[in-house]
Design a protein around this nucleic acid. Structure first.
Length: 690
RNA sequence: GCCACCGUAGCUCAGUGGUAGAGCACACCCUUGGUAAGGGUGAGGUCAUGGGUUCAAGUCCCAUCGGUGGCUCCA
C-alpha cells in the first residue's frame, strides 16, 4: 500500500489507494485548498489523481515557497483556461470545432475550425471573456475519464470532429493505451474535450485571464491543409499579476525598435520605396557604421581581408552555385536587359513564355544577389592558391536581396534587402576547427562588449539516416565535432539539433529574443563542402597535388539590419556612448552663454565627438527634456558659473545631475569612454573626489 | 502567401452619413533662464489609393497598396 514521500523527506503511509487531494488534506487543509495539481514522481498530474503505489509527491500551488509564480501552476492554469476559453467560444460562436489547445510560454492558445461565414474577431473577445467568467463562476470540476482506445475512437467518430479524431490517432500512434477526456462538470452532461490533461481542480481556479489576440493557423502547421483560427489568451493566479503583465507588455512596446527607430530618427521604411527596404537616416547610419567599424577592426585583427562586390551577378553564376532556381521563389526575379527583351518580343515571345524563361532561368539575365558567396568564391578563384596561403578569409558587409513573404516583412528584423556581416573562409580540412573557434571568439567579443548575455546557440547536425547531405561522411564527423567544440568554447548554453544541418554542412546559429519575446536568428557559421565542389575550387598542397578547400560561411550577426534592430531594443534606445548618434549636447542656460556653449561644443567636435549645441530660446528644463528624449548620454549645462570657472555641469541621461567638472577633464574623460567602448566612463571620473 | 484588425497633420491619436479636430513637433513673437515641458500667435489635410452606395461618405460596401499580431516560410 502506498508510502508517499513528500518534498521535505517525510513519508506518509496509507493502507489503501489514496487521492492526491486527500494527501494534501492530511498535510493541511490550507494546502489542500490552495492545491492546483500535484507532481507524482516528477510528473505533473491532477490533484484528483489516485495514488496506488509508493511515490514521491509534491503539491502544486500558485506560488512557490519563496513567493514566485510556480511554473507548474501556470502550466495547469493556462491549459485549463484554454479549455474554458474553448467552451466559451462554442457558446458565443455556433459551429466551432475544436482542434488543439496547448499552454505555451506566456499563455495559451486554442486552434479551432470556425465557420467561414462567422469569423472570430477582436470584437468578440468581450463576449468570450464574459462567458469565460460565467464558466469560471460556475466552478465546475475538471473531471477526467478514460476510455479504451477502440471505444474512444468510436466515441470521437460519433462526435464527428475529424480534428479530435486525428489527435486521438496521433496519441495512439505515440503509444497511448487509453484516450482521456476532461469534462468541466458532469460526464455526458457538461462540456468536454479530448485531452490528456492535467488540469486544475475546477473552472473557478483558472485565474485572472484575458483573450489577447486572434490569428490564423494551419492544421498540422501545413499551409496546404485546413486553415484554422487560433485564439490566444493569458492567465495569472490573480488580477494584480495579470495587470502587471499587461503593463510589462505596454512597456515592452515602447522599447520596440520600430517605435524607437522613429522616435530617435534612426531609420524609415517608406512604402513608395518598397516593403522591407530600409532607409537609414543619419542617426541610424552612425550606429550602423560604428558597429561595422568595430566588427571590422576585430576581423582585421583575426586576419580577414575586406573585399567589395557588386549587388548583382549573372544568373548563370547562381545556377552554378545552385541558388537559382532552387531558391528562386525567395529571390527577386531576374533582371533582363531591354535590348534582349526587344529581341524576345520581336521573335514573338509571349508574356507567358517570358515568365517561364525567367522562372526556369533559361535566359541571360542578372540576379540581385541573394548571397555573397558566389562573388567571394570568384575572387578566391581569381588566382591560384598554395596551401601556404590558406586560410583565405574574405569579408564584406555585403547587401543581399531576398523576396520574403509580405506577411512576414516588418521593422528591421525581417526585410527584403539587408547587409550581411559576411565572410567566407577558404581553408584546408585541418584548419576547420581552428577557424570555427575564431568565428565564435568574434561573437564572444562583440556580444561581451555590447553586454548582450541573453542569446542562445544552436548546433545543427546532420540526421545520419538521411541521404540529403553532400560530402564525405568522415569530413562531416570531423566538422560536426569541430562545431560542437567551438560552441562549447563560448561558455553559453547551446543545444545540438539533429537534422538541422544545412545539406552542405553542419552549422552553429545564434538566436536572440526581441522585446516581445520572439526568437530571431542572428548569425550563423556554416561549414560547406558543396560550393567548393560546384565551383571546382582547388589549392596546391604540400604534395604538389590539387586539393579541394573547405569553405566556412559566417555571418555571426546575420544582418546588420536585424542586429541593429535587436540592439535598439537591447539598449531601449540608450546606446552606449561610443554608439550613440549624438554623444553630447551642450545646453546653455541662457543665450548670454551661447558663446561659451559654442566653444565647448567646438572643442568636443575637434576631439571627434558627436556634439551639438541647443541654441533654442527654451528654458534649460525644456532643453534637458528634449535631449533626454533623444537619449543623448551626456548633457552639458553651461552658464555663468561654468564659463567663469571653465567647467561644464554634467548631466547623464540616467544618473541625472552629476555635478561640474573642468571642461578639459570632461573632454578627456569622454575620449576615454568612447575609446574604451565604455570600460572607462566619465561618471567614474566624477566619483573620484577632487 | 493565409486569417483578423488597422490606415485621419511630421508624430501620438479623437472624430454619431451632414462645415476636418486635439496634444506634441514646426514657424514667428514675447520671455533670458541652473537640471525632464515658460507664454502667445500662426501655418500645416486629396481623411492610404481607386471604384461603388447615397441628396450627402473620413464614416457604409468592394478592390488595391501599406502597417500590426499570429500561421506558413526563412539558403
Amino acid at each position: 500500500m502506498p508510502r508517499i514521500t513528500l518534498p521535505d523527506g517525510s513519508v506518509k503511509a496509507y493502507d489503501q489507494p489514496v487521492f492526491a487531494f486527500q494527501v494534501a488534506q492530511d498535510i493541511g487543509p490550507g494546502l489542500a485548498k490552495a492545491a492546483l495539481g500535484c507532481k507524482i514522481d516528477g510528473v505533473l498530474s491532477d490533484i484528483g489523481s489516485l495514488i496506488a503505489s509508493d511515490c514521491e509527491l509534491s503539491i502544486v500551488t500558485a506560488k512557490t515557497r519563496d513567493g514566485a509564480l510556480d511554473d507548474d501552476a501556470l502550466y495547469l492554469m493556462r491549459h485549463s483556461c484554454a479549455h474554458v476559453m474553448a467552451e466559451a467560444v462554442q457558446r458565443v460562436v455556433p459551429g466551432v470545432l475544436l482542434v488543439y489547445g496547448p499552454p505555451v510560454e506566456n499563455g495559451f492558445y486554442y486552434d479551432m475550425y470556425v465557420p467561414e461565414d462567422r469569423p472570430i474577431s477582436s470584437a468578440d473577445f468581450e463576449a468570450i471573456e464574459k462567458e469565460m467568467a460565467a464558466i469560471a463562476g460556475e466552478d465546475r470540476p475538471f473531471a477526467r475519464y478514460d476510455r479504451p482506445v477502440a471505444e474512444g475512437v468510436e466515441k470521437l467518430k460519433d462526435e464527428g470532429s475529424k480534428y479530435k479524431l486525428d489527435n486521438a490517432q496521433r496519441a495512439i500512434e505515440a503509444g497511448s493505451a487509453e484516450l482521456s477526456w476532461y469534462t468541466t462538470g458532469e460526464p455526458g452532461k457538461d462540456w468536454e474535450d479530448l485531452c490528456r490533461g492535467p488540469h486544475v481542480p475546477t473552472t473557478g481556479r483558472i485565474g485572472a485571464f484575458k483573450v489577447m489576440s486572434v490569428a490564423s493557423s494551419y492544421w498540422h502547421g501545413d499551409a496546404d491543409s485546413d486553415r484554422l483560427t487560433r485564439l490566444y489568451g493569458i492567465t495569472f493566479p490573480d488580477k494584480k499579476q495579470l495587470d502587471e503583465h499587461l503593463v510589462r507588455l505596454e512597456e515592452a512596446k515602447k522599447r520596440d525598435h520600430r517605435v524607437l527607430g522613429k522616435q530617435l530618427k534612426l531609420f524609415y521604411i517608406d512604402e513608395a520605396v518598397g516593403q522591407g527596404l530600409v532607409l537609414w537616416a543619419p542617426n541610424g547610419t552612425i550606429v550602423r557604421r560604428e558597429l561595422e567599424a568595430f566588427i571590422l577592426s576585430e576581423l582585421i585583427r583575426q586576419g580577414y581581408q575586406q573585399v567589395c562586390t557588386p549587388h548583382i551577378g549573372k544568373l548563370g553564376l547562381y545556377k552554378t552555385s545552385g541558388h537559382f532556381p532552387y531558391y528562386q521563389n525567395s529571390q527577386y526575379p531576374p533582371l533582363i536587359h531591354q535590348e534582349q527583351m526587344r529581341v524576345l518580343v520581336r521573335d514573338g515571345c509571349s508574356c507567358a513564355e517570358l515568365a517561364n524563361l525567367l522562372r526556369e532561368g533559361d535566359i541571360d539575365g542578372y540576379l540581385l544577389k541573394p548571397m555573397n558567396c558566389p562573388h567571394h568564391i570568384k575572387l578566391f578563384d581569381s588566382e591560384p592558391h598554395s596551401y601556404r596561403d590558406l586560410p583565405v578569409r574574405l569579408a564584406e558587409f555585403g547587401m543581399v536581396y531576398r523576396w520574403e513573404q509580405s506577411g512576414e516583412v516588418g521593422g528591421l528584423t525581417r526585410v527584403r534587402g539587408f547587409t550581411q556581416d559576411d565572410a567566407h573562409i577558404f581553408c584546408t580540412e585541418d584548419q576547420v576547427e581552428q577557424e570555427l573557434m575564431g568565428c565564435l571568439e568574434l561573437v564572444n567579443i562583440i556580444f561581451n562588449t555590447l553586454e548582450m548575455k541573453d542569446y542562445r546557440v544552436r548546433v545543427g547536425l546532420r540526421d545520419k539516416d538521411s541521404s540529403k547531405y553532400v560530402g564525405e561522411m568522415e569530413n562531416w564527423d570531423r566538422a560536426e565535432a569541430a562545431c560542437v567544440a567551438a560552441a562549447e568554447s563560448l561558455g553559453v548554453p547551446f543545444k545540438k539539433e539533429i537534422g538541422e544541418a544545412a545539406f552542405y554542412g553542419p552549422k552553429v546559429d545564434f538566436i536572440v529574443k526581441d522585446v516581445l519575446g520572439r526568437d530571431w536568428q542572428l548569425g550563423t557559421v556554416q561549414v560547406d563542402y558543396n560550393l567548393p565542389e560546384r565551383f571546382d575550387l582547388s589549392y596546391i598542397g604540400a604534395d604538389n597535388q590539387q586539393h579541394r578547400p573547405v569553405m566556412i560561411h559566417r555571418a555571426p550577426f546575420g544582418s546588420i539590419e536585424r542586429f541593429v534592430g535587436v540592439l535598439i531594443e537591447h539598449f531601449a534606445g540608450a546606446f552606449p556612448t561610443w554608439l550613440s548618434p549624438e554623444q553630447v549636447r551642450v545646453l546653455p542656460v541662457s543665450d548670454k552663454f551661447l558663446d561659451y556653449g559654442k566653444e565647448v561644443c567646438d572643442l568636443l567636435k575637434a576631439h571627434g565627438r558627436r556634439a551639438s549645441l541647443d541654441d533654442s530660446s527654451e528654458r534649460v528644463q525644456a532643453k534637458i527634456r528634449a535631449a533626454q528624449e533623444m537619449q543623448v548620454p551626456y548633457m552639458l549645462i553651461v552658464g555663468g558659473r561654468d564659463r567663469d570657472a571653465r567647467t561644464v555641469s554634467v548631466r547623464h541621461r540616467r544618473e541625472g545631475d552629476v555635478g561640474a567638472m573642468p571642461l578639459d577633464a570632461f573632454v578627456e574623460a569622454l575620449d576615454d569612454e568612447v575609446r574604451s567602448k565604455g570600460e572607462a566612463t566619465v561618471l567614474e571620473k566624477l566619483q573620484v573626489p577632487a
